[in-house]
């Protein structure tokens, strides 16, 4: 168990895939990790420590957890996505919050 003060500060990003195709949770995770890895590199990716917490394939929206310190870089990486599953599309950031419950409000 880590002491609360030593725990990494995190942020939750509510995002939505805007593309004509259907997308499953695994595909969404691959797209997100691919985008983050290509923009941030391996070192930046490890610092951002992203994790797809939740994904709804019907609404194509999900929640990505990442480090608070790297939130701006994560937002930039997701904003620079212009293809999803090989088709024109983008990842729209809807809201950023420190807790999952607030994202759902």
């Amino acid at each position: 168990m880590v002491v609360p003060t030593l725990r990494q500060k995190k942020r939750y990003v509510h995002l939505r895939f805007e593309c004509p195709c259907n997308i499953s949770e695994n595909e969404a995770q691959a797209e997100l990790y691919g985008a983050l890895l290509s923009f941030l590199g391996e070192l930046g990716f490890s610092r951002a420590n992203p994790k797809l917490v939740e994904f709804n394939s019907t609404s194509k929206s999900g929640i990505l957890k990442c480090s608070n310190a790297e939130i701006q870089n994560v937002k930039a990486a997701l904003a620079l996505v212009n293809r999803v599953k090989g088709e024109n599309g983008c990842i729209r950031i809807l809201k950023v919050s420190g807790s999952v419950s607030k994202l759902m409000d």
């Binding site: 937002k75 930039a76 904003a79 212009n82 024109n88 983008c90």
Partner: peptide, 11 residues
């Protein structure tokens, strides 16, 4: 798809 929101442009 290329249109970005203000927070995305800031990032």
């Amino acid at each position: 798809f290329f249109m970005k929101s203000p927070p995305e442009l800031v990032a």
